[in-house]
Amino acid sequence: MIVSFLRRGTLFALLWLIASEGNPAAWPLAVAGIAGATVASLWLLPAKVLPPISPAGLARFLIWFIRQSLAGGVQVALLAVQPRLALRPALIELPLTVPPGLPRLLFTAALSLMPGTLGVRLQGDTLLVHVLDRQQPLQAEELAERVAGVFGGAR
């Protein structure tokens, strides 16, 4: 409890520092804001509910994800500027292996920003996915592994 209070407090203080550009003039407001944000975050998302997050896994995920989203943007940009539209779209059902809750949220959100895939409907343990090119291999398995890595799920 105290550890997560301090950890989140530090995070919010850092955000305040960035947003205020390090201006110390408004420090009473800063203290109130940081304390309020920390209490609210512990109330809305108690540490018990939050699955353990591995910092190394998160860092690895972010680096990989940024590369993927760059590739996704480049791919769709190329498709858009081509004289002939080369789309072969389809809706496919993807069985989900990641656990419900935050991991599944991260999986669905990330998949929509990756090359050629877009989450359409989450129902039960399947995700309906719209793909731009049905011949392009899905990267769902690798994404699932990396999401598991973020939440400390050692494989």
């Binding site: 989203s69 760059l70 996704g72 943007g73 480049v74 791919q75 769709v76 940009a77 190329l78 498709l79 858009a80 500027v81 539209l85 789309l87 779209p89 929509s112 920003l113 090359p115 050629g116 877009l118 359409v120 719209h130 731009l132």
Partner: peptide, 30 residues
Amino acid sequence: VFFFAGTLGLLRFPDVYTRLHALAKADNLG
């Protein structure tokens, strides 16, 4: 260039799903 590609996709792509791909990915990269 990426913003332009996103707009082009929005105007050219044939349905709402493909247009979403264009906006969500190209515009964010831009």
